[in-house]
């Protein structure tokens, strides 16, 4: 089924819960109201015409540094300096958080993409782990790295990082740790380049290389 037709079916089911349809993208996507996402996923899975039996991927998104139209504003992601110390900034993060759902139907052989958008202060989305069990681990990973809580999740623990980790590292305002559990995470100063760029050659350097010095 064409993606436009899928969205029409979905919008007919959700009513005002379907916020927008972004067709002019490589992977067209529908924006859904966060409180209706579980409803939308159940409809997409159980409707015989759609039959989305697989959740291919569930990803957390940080829209920090994007304006309302979705255009990026070049936010510098914080890392470590050349001296190995964590970088800091005075800028406060703005922009929403979000979740993207990529669905696939093995029977109908069509794909669909959903997105929800929540405010950075809220950062909570209903779970879809009861719709596709694989979402449980994906949601744990999104919670671990981006810091999106999934309401109703059966076991929302960290997936990759240690239980004692502070913060969510893939947020764009995350400040790198200098020390963690007694382990030094900061680096040592980078060595100076022993081969600095030489001065550009002046004079008539043809394809054969630099001009040999004139004989005295």
């Amino acid at each position: 089924m064409e993606q436009n037709a899928i969205y029409e079916l979905l919008a007919g089911h959700l009513g005002e819960g379907a916020l927008a349809w972004h067709e002019d993208a490589v992977e067209p996507w529908a924006e859904i109201a966060p409180e209706r996402i579980a409803d939308a996923c159940l409809f997409l899975r159980d409707d015989e015409r759609l039959d989305f039996n697989q959740l291919m991927c569930l990803s957390g998104i940080d829209w920090d540094g994007y304006d309302e139209n979705g255009k990026g504003k070049s936010v510098a992601i914080l890392g470590y300096t050349d001296e190995g110390q964590p970088e800091t900034t005075d800028r406060t993060a703005d922009g929403d958080l979000g979740v993207a759902y990529h669905l696939y139907s093995h029977a109908q052989r069509h794909k669909f993409t959903l997105r929800v958008r929540v405010a950075r202060e809220v950062a909570e989305v209903p779970t879809v782990s009861h719709v596709w069990p694989t979402a449980a681990w994906h949601e744990r990973e999104a919670w671990d790295l981006v810091g999106i809580r999934f309401a109703g999740h059966p076991d929302l623990r960290r997936m990759l990082l240690d239980e004692a980790w502070e913060g969510h590292p893939l947020r764009k305002d995350y400040v790198m740790p200098a020390m963690w559990e007694g382990v030094p995470m900061e680096g040592r100063p980078l060595a100076k380049n022993p081969f600095p760029a030489t001065e550009p050659a002046t004079g008539d350097d043809g394809p054969g290389g630099p001009t040999p010095p004139a004989e005295a």
Binding site: I77, G79, Y80, G84, L161, P169, Y174, M176, P177, V183, P184, M185, E186, G187, R188, L190
Partner: peptide, 15 residues
Amino acid sequence: YFKYGYHVVKGVDQM
């Protein structure tokens, strides 16, 4: 992982 490795020890001789 020196620049953006929040999870990587920058040299095992620190351990």
